[in-house]
Computed example of a mutant assay.
Amino acid sequence: MSLRNYSLATIDDFIGRQLGVSDWVVIDQSRIDAFAQCTGDTQWIHVDVERARRESPFGGTVAHGYLTLSLVAPLAMQIGLIPDGVSAGLNYGLDKVRFMTPVKAGARVRNRVTLMSVERKGGGSVIVKVMNELQIDGTDRPALIAETLAMLVARHACAEPEAGAV
């Protein structure tokens, strides 16, 4: 997706503005189980459906907080955080993360992205700070809010070889 008039040259004009809202993504039990296997975090509240149904205060399994956090970057890219003219967008860090509401298995989430700041670096690259609000379908409170940092590396044009050059 591409934001109108959003580029590395005009990115400062977008500070303080919402860049967009991603599509909904379902956090089903199979995604939760795959994340548990990948990370080794197999706590029952995430992977034991029957026990979670009986004992969890949420009435069933919930996604790992870090699973929900891992969705922030790809959903921000989906809305067009990385503008044309950028060869790479790299995770640079986190300034603040708060896990507000557990995401129940089967829930849908989406990311609302707002550009907070831009810090220009040498070589045409910039560090952007973005506010991410991972919303849960049907609830007023977000799953999380996260201030993330990304380094956008400018694409440098290669000079065309001169006529007759080998």
Rank of each mutant, 00 (worst) to 15 (best):
G16D: 00
N5I: 01
V62H: 03
A150V: 11
N132W: 01
S30C: 11
Q37D: 15
N111H: 09
M116P: 11
A159W: 01
V97S: 08
L152E: 06
L115P: 12
L8D: 11
N91P: 12
V86K: 09
T10E: 12
M100Y: 00
A163Q: 14
L134T: 15
E50W: 05
N132Y: 02
L3G: 05
A63F: 13
V153R: 12
A107K: 00
V109I: 15
I145E: 05
L75T: 07
D12C: 08
D13Q: 13
R4Y: 02
N111G: 09
T42S: 05
T148S: 09
L8S: 11
V166F: 03
K104E: 07
R98Y: 11
F99S: 12
V153Y: 03
N111K: 02
T10F: 11
M100S: 15
M116I: 14
A9E: 15
A146Q: 08
V49G: 00
D95L: 04
P74C: 13
G16F: 04
L94W: 10
D95M: 08
A52G: 12
V118F: 08
A157M: 12
K96E: 15
P83E: 02
V97N: 06
D48E: 03
A146V: 01
A143V: 13
D140F: 10
I136V: 15
L19H: 04
D140T: 14
E133C: 11
P142K: 09
E133A: 09
R51L: 12
Q29F: 05
R31A: 12
A159F: 01
I136N: 03
L90A: 08
V103G: 06
R141C: 02
V109T: 10
Q29W: 02
D137A: 05
S117M: 08
F58M: 10
A9S: 13
H156K: 14
A88C: 07
V166G: 06
I27K: 02
L69K: 04
G138T: 10
D28E: 09
D28A: 05
R141P: 07
S2M: 07
G124A: 13
R54H: 08
I82Q: 12
V166D: 06
I145S: 01
Q29D: 04
G93L: 07
E160V: 11
E133N: 10
I11W: 09
T61Q: 02
G20P: 09
A159N: 08
A107M: 10
T42C: 03
C158D: 13
D13G: 11
L90I: 15
R17Q: 06
P83C: 03
L134P: 10
S117Y: 08
G80F: 12
F58T: 03
D84W: 00
D12L: 09
G85F: 05
